[in-house]
Each structure stands twice: as C-alpha cells, then as structure tokens.
Simulated scan of single mutants.
Amino acid sequence: MLVQAIRSLLFYGLYLGQTVVLAIVIGLDAVLRGRTGFGWAAARYWGASNLFFLRWVVGIRSDVRGMENIPDGPCIIAAKHMSDWDIFAILPHTRRPAFIAKRELMDIPFFGWAARAFDTIRIDRALGGEAIPAMMEDARAALARGCRIVIFPEGTRKAPLAPPDYRFGTARLYAELGVPVVPVALDSGLYWGRRSLVLWPGTARARFLPPIAPGLSAEDFHAELAAAIEGETGRLLFSAYERGLAGPIAPELRERLEALRPQDPSGDTTTY
C-alpha cells in the first residue's frame, strides 16, 4: 500500500505538472495564433505521455479495441467516464475531437484557452434546457470542420457499477445532428478510483462498440445507448474482477460484481 501510494504521488506530480505547463503554452499559442498544428501535436503528446506515466510509474496498462467500429465520416463518440484515463485512451482514435465540456472547465485561465483551440464545445449546465441550442450550434460547426464529437453521456465520472444516470443531451445531439453514435464501454475505475488518491496496477480496458445508426426516436436511442454501454461495461468489470484486482474492493462494489456472475441452468453460479 505504501509503495503504491508513493508511485501514485509521483504520477500525480508528473501528470499535473506537465498539464499546467502545457495548458499555459498551448493557451498562449491559441490566443496568439488560434488553432495550430503545434497545439494538436502538444495535445497528442499530452495524452500519450500520460498513458506512458500510468504504465511505467503506477503499473496501469491500456487495452483499447473496437476502433473498426468508428465510421470514417462525422460521428458522435459517447463514452462511459470513470477516470481521466478515459480521455487519454480515447484521444488517439478521435482524429480531430470536439469534446463537450462543462462551462466551469472552460473558464479556467490558460486551460480554457487551450480547450477552445481544440474545438471544445462548452455547455453551461446551470442554464438547463436553455443551454442546448448553443451546444447544438457549436456541435454543427464542429462537424462541419471535420471533428468527431466526444461526449460523456452521464456528464461526470462515475464509480464502477454505480447506478447509471444518462442525461438526455446525447439523445438530443443524436436526433438533431443525424450522425451515428459510437458507444464506448470501459473499466478504468477499478484502477483509478473516482475519489481515490492511490492508483492500482492492472490493465484498464476500453471498447468502441458498433455504432447506433441515425433514425431512432430520441427515447429509443437513449435506451439503446445506455443498454449497450452498461452491458459491455458490466462484462469488462466482472472479467477484471474474476482475473483478480490489486486494489481493495469495497463491500458494496463486491456485492454488485457478484450479482453479475452468470448462472447455469441448474441455478448454480458459474465463472468465466
């Protein structure tokens, strides 16, 4: 525990330190020159270097699959969100991403300037439904520039197997933009907990799932998206649990994981 805590502290120092430096450099560059190749190169370096630090400092490997499910044209990538690993892991496969982020993040000096240079779409959740028209306008403009929109449908990080809370904003985007939506399931919260200062070794996994084609009603899409992400996320979490986890498992999480255990026809539990 002590060794892993020290390793985690070292990672946070590297991660936060370089994030601050890069935000200042990219933010100033964005103010002076707007969107530039330098900014995109720095963003790719940021994501790749943090995955490197996670692998070699705290022992979190990355396993991302299903990229063949991402359409060549415009689309929305809708991902489960458990930790910052999710951003690092998804970023290389988004081509030119337009992340949807809450206004508070965009108001941070330098960080917000850098985010705007990367086509980030701001949403003011305090405005409720009144924020949707502005988000739609920015989303259409981002698609026209060749971006892929990236959204976390629950709006915030969630602990593994916490009750899902899918907002209707993704369904509104789907209905109004008329582009495919690629669900993304992942299990990173087992290694980088939402409120844990200690990161635990293991292999964090993300899966890009088959896209949901345009044409469904907003209600049907909303249900299908949640079912796809939650179903595959549950399978990833249970598979990791069965293989064994280095970190502690809270009793509530263990109970929820055990509830995912398949049963054979006789009613006895089985293992994968």
Rank of each mutant, 00 (worst) to 15 (best):
P74E: 10
R65D: 11
L54M: 14
D63T: 08
C75G: 02
I70S: 11
V58H: 05
F111N: 04
H81T: 02
R35D: 13
K102M: 07
I90Q: 10
W40A: 14
A98W: 07
F99P: 08
A43H: 01
T36V: 03
W85F: 13
G112L: 06
R61L: 08
F52R: 11
I60G: 04
E104I: 00
S62C: 13
R103K: 15
F99A: 09
M106L: 15
G73C: 11
D107A: 15
A79D: 06
T94F: 11
M67T: 15
P109L: 12
L91P: 00
W46T: 14
F52K: 01
K80Q: 10
L51H: 00
M106P: 02
A79I: 00
T36Q: 06
S62E: 09
R35Q: 14
A101H: 00
A101R: 06
F110V: 10
K102V: 03
A41V: 07
S62Y: 02
F38P: 12
G112A: 09
W40Q: 14
A48Y: 00
P97W: 03
A78I: 01
I76K: 02
E68I: 01
P109V: 12
W40L: 10
G73L: 10
V58Y: 06
E104C: 04
A101P: 00
L51M: 15
V64E: 07
G47L: 00
M67Y: 03
I70T: 05
G59I: 02
C75N: 04
R55Y: 01
W46Q: 12
G112H: 05
A89D: 11
P97D: 10
W56A: 00
I100A: 09
D107N: 12
I87T: 10
V57G: 02
R95Y: 07
T94A: 15
I70M: 07
P74L: 09
F110R: 05
E68L: 04
F111L: 15
W40H: 14
V58M: 05
K80S: 10
S62T: 14
Y45C: 06
A89C: 06
D86P: 11
G59S: 02
R103M: 02
